[in-house]
């Protein structure tokens, strides 16, 4: 088990290294481009060369990569071209905002989809099951930008009970969080629900559930003690991996609602070729994704006694 955890962590570090190399190659392979992006298209050839010289861009590529990587590890991401401040100063507050958004979304998605999924999977084929299944297909079919438009139309335009933007210019406002969370939750809950349902339905058909029923255990005990424990292993993994999806979703939602989060920052940086911000954002996003994946794998192993004790 220990070995497994260590190995997973090793894989995680390796993945991060490869990702960093990819990013580096993609964005910094040509120093000329970097200089143009940093100094703007109207800079002179001379200015660019001076800048490149000063920042060590004429060194061999591997040297540059390792220096870049070293700086990354100690948290020095360079200066943002657009904001003219170290990337970290922009990034960390934005990340915190996104964290709030993501946590709030998971806080809604996890209980709702687990309960609905278990209810649907418990009695496969029942009316309740079909209602839940079809509605989860419908909600996952509406892209985030579309549901943002639709929900805004209803809650902002028609009912006028929620603000249409979530800039939070006057400090944190819970009301402004509601619509973004709603949009993310509506899109995400369907998938988790369907996976939970499938897992539950599969468990309900196993022979050990039959054994439990034919032992004479009350139905509630069969569900609570025998079914749930096995049925919730898959959803656990799914929820952890859902964090990866959420990081995609926040880009759209933050853009739409002008929420000052990490996704909006990445998008802005991409549209403005703010390469050091792009690099930092991408590394952070991948780190979060890989870390949750690792937790999912380790957790899966831990929850599964068949793997844990062998």
């Amino acid at each position: 088990m220990m070995i497994f955890v260590l190995r997973r962590c090793g894989t995680m570090v390796l993945t991060m290294l490869v990702v960093s190399l990819l990013l580096f190659l993609l964005l910094e392979i040509s120093p000329g481009n970097v200089a143009t992006k940093v100094l703007g298209p109207y800079s002179s050839e001379e200015q660019r060369n001076l800048w490149l010289e000063a920042h060590g861009y004429f060194d061999p590529i591997y040297e540059r990569y390792f220096r870049w990587l070293g700086n990354f590890v100690i948290g020095d991401f360079g200066d943002s071209i657009r904001f003219k401040v170290p990337v970290g100063e922009v990034l960390w507050p934005r990340l915190a905002n996104t964290g709030i958004l993501a946590l709030a979304t998971l806080g809604v998605v996890v209980p709702v989809s687990l309960i609905l999924g278990v209810l649907a999977g418990m009695r496969e084929g029942s009316t309740l099951d079909r209602t839940i299944s079809v509605s989860s297909i419908v909600t996952t079919s509406v892209p985030e930008f579309a549901s943002a438009v639709l929900l805004s139309a209803v809650f902002v335009f028609l009912l006028d009970i929620l603000p249409g933007t979530s800039g939070m210019s006057e400090g944190f406002d819970l009301k402004q969080l509601i619509l973004p969370v709603m949009v993310l939750a509506v899109y995400d809950f369907g998938y988790v629900t369907r996976m939970t349902r499938a897992s539950m339905a599969e468990v309900m058909l196993t022979h050990y559930i039959r054994t439990a029923v034919l032992k004479g255990l009350p139905y509630k005990t069969v569900i609570a003690r025998h079914a749930l424990r096995n049925a919730l292993i898959t959803p656990f993994t799914v929820i952890m991996l859902q964090i990866n999806w959420l990081l995609s979703g926040v880009i759209v939602v933050e853009y739409y609602f002008a929420y000052k989060g990490f996704g909006a920052l990445l998008l802005e940086a991409s549209l403005n070729s703010d390469i050091f911000v792009i690099e930092a954002c991408a590394m952070v996003a991948v780190f979060v994704a890989v870390a949750t994946q690792t937790i999912a794998d380790v957790g899966y192993t831990y929850l599964n006694p068949r793997i844990r004790f062998s």
Binding site: T15, L247, S248, I251, L266, A282, A285, V286
Partner: peptide, 22 residues
């Protein structure tokens, strides 16, 4: 599988945004 894992460890939209921006 490792290559697949590396690519899949990017949040999808982050990957798209970076690729298209590049």
């Amino acid at each position: 599988s490792f290559i697949a894992n590396v690519i899949l460890s990017f949040p999808v939209l982050v990957l798209y945004v970076i690729i298209i921006a590049t």
